[in-house]
Write a protein that binds this DNA or RNA. Sequence first.
DNA 1: ACCTGAACACCGTTCAAGT
DNA 2: ACCTGAACACCGTTCAAGT
Lengths: 190, 190
Amino acid sequence: MSRPPRIDRAAVLTATLELADEKGLAAVSMRAVADRLGVTPMALYRHVGDKQQLLDGLVEWVLREVPLPDPALPWPERLEAMAQAMRTTARRHPDVFPLLLRRPAVTPGAARVREAVYAALRGAGVPEPDVARTERMLSTFVLGFAASEAGGRFTVDAAQLDADFSWAAGRLLGGLVDGADRAVEAERAG
Amino acid sequence: MSRPPRIDRAAVLTATLELADEKGLAAVSMRAVADRLGVTPMALYRHVGDKQQLLDGLVEWVLREVPLPDPALPWPERLEAMAQAMRTTARRHPDVFPLLLRRPAVTPGAARVREAVYAALRGAGVPEPDVARTERMLSTFVLGFAASEAGGRFTVDAAQLDADFSWAAGRLLGGLVDGADRAVEAERAG
DNA sequence: ACCTGAACACCGTTCAAGT
DNA sequence: ACCTGAACACCGTTCAAGT
């Protein structure tokens, strides 16, 4: 007869993420995760495959945690909110975040964020043939920036980094943001 | 009495890089590196400290391998050459390269590349107060792009990626490259 | 269906010892 | 000064067994 499961996939991923945040990625072992859950290491295999799949699942788990902005907001605010959300996620999970750069962006979690960026770029009037490319380069920059920031590569202060980020994002968007800011203000003015 | 060393730091780093390239970063263990050198694992500690320092040294070792362009070349060609060199290095060492995003950019190897970019940006007429920031954002993008490309995050073909890269780099440079290309051609035309 | 126990081939690192 | 051997507390994973 079957008996009720003591752990499930979500519990394993939650425990793994806590461990990675508290003690670093190097401390993430099947045995340490199992310890935290109060089971033997072998109990994990049924739920997450093996260690590589555990790490793959962890990346997806982190990506799903990134909040998406209200689609009713003006597109510059949506882009800004998503970029800041990625930076916040990177700072919250500095050891796990860089793994994002090592996985094909084809998972549901990656597609979820990408589609929201597509919508904002279309709202900005980016021509359809340019939408995918603009998203690829923007997300590459945001991932690289967030990973660098969380990993401690930058040696300037936080205010300088905020200014750098806006400056670079504005350039990648080719002046769209400045134009749109004016458009949004014009709307508000009536 | 002392006896002649059988291995040195360079030999350890070379063996480590070969191992990482052939079998991945997960295969890099003190024991496996020692095996490849024909010594016991404990012999490595004198030369590279411990495993964390071995990995730190490995990143620096890879960075020193990036070729710098002839300073006599026009600046757009120098920037282009350095960017392509970073992509080549990333593809050659896909497992080691992402570690660059997790280390402060204060090592000699990082400074070496940075100074060459500074010189090119000054040659391009970037105002002095903007030079450091432009370099930070450009290198963040190039690192993120190269790591993504080498790590398999992109799912488009190589020609598309080349086009994407030029497009984004041109935008980050704020039209400097297009202007300079014309300037260089005008010079050549006499 | 879900978890355990024992086992195997690995790890990083310390410490005392050899030359 | 440089390397070794033995030892300790870890790894990931398989396999057969228990409920």
